[in-house]
Design a binder for these strands. Structure first.
Ligand SMILES: [Zn+2]
Ligand SMILES: [Zn+2]
Ligand SMILES: [Zn+2]
Ligand SMILES: [Zn+2]
Lengths: 135, 135
DNA sequence: ATCTATCACGTTATGATATAACATTTCAAA
DNA sequence: TTTGAAATGTTATATCATAACGTGATAGAT
């Protein structure tokens, strides 16, 4: 759970909620959390604004295929992350994809496309849920 | 624009709409299209059901970061596709990512994770929109 | 031929995700 | 102290997606 500085009050609350969660949280799940409620965050827009700022600061990643958000596992990083997302328990593992950066860049360059943002998400079953399925 | 067989009436309509579109379409954009309207498709669920079947058949891909759908550029393929998505005009280029498959598999294997679905989306500016921005 | 299981489809309602518009507060730089 | 930018509050609304339940077409079994 990374520490963060220079956050506003609302951003800090939202970041704390995500940092303590063991899987990605939707904006409305964050809104419904005890921590958010205790601190007076009670409108969706409040959450979305904080999330936008946190994503800009690269402290939080948006998981597109879940419409949810997860605190970054590492120090804030510009390079693309990849996520292994369990479709059963939603637990999500973050990893970097440096090995693919060159391939992505080459692909984009071929199309004269300027990449600003890369999303890599792999959905499937985590080890625990596979074991559970077998039992 | 690929041809498709074994589609139901609704699926064929939705597929035709996507095939003629020059960029990904949301379910509600499809719903609002002339072709859909002419053919009596008038409820969101009708569109979503057809889309689900088309995605299952791999004739259509879902673009997670747009909540939209695009007809597959190629013959139906099981291997993951990657998309270059212009944030300005939304035009989207599909390409395959065979070069990354090994890396993805290795990453998953390390976590004992079974991958079922891979999403690769790159957002940025297409060549046309870059030129336009400069002028 | 008709029964029955299955699948696609229709219809209505509702749930879930996200943003627009505008007012107010905060707070630090000038 | 003024004042301007950023953050926040509040209300309303837009956008995306599915639940629940009923109907009609199709096809194999009897
Ligand atoms: Zn990260
Ligand atoms: Zn799991
Ligand atoms: Zn494809
Ligand atoms: Zn463009």
């Amino acid at each position: 759970m990374a520490k963060a500085t220079g956050l506003t009050h609302n951003q800090q609350i939202v970041f704390d909620v995500l940092s303590h969660a063991d899987r990605p949280q939707t904006a409305y799940e964050i809104l419904g959390s005890e921590l958010a409620h205790e601190n007076g965050l009670k409108a969706p827009l409040t959450i979305y604004r904080a999330l936008e700022a946190l994503v800009d600061k690269a402290l939080v990643h948006r998981i597109e295929s879940l419409n949810a958000f997860i605190a970054c596992d590492h120090e804030p990083h510009p390079e693309p992350a990849a996520f292994l997302i369990c479709r059963n328990c939603r637990k999500t593992h973050e990893t970097t994809m440096e090995a693919c950066s060159g391939i992505f860049q080459a692909t984009a360059r071929q199309q004269l496309f300027t990449v600003e943002q890369v999303t890599i998400e792999m959905s499937g079953l985590c080890a625990e849920c596979q074991a559970q399925a077998r039992s």
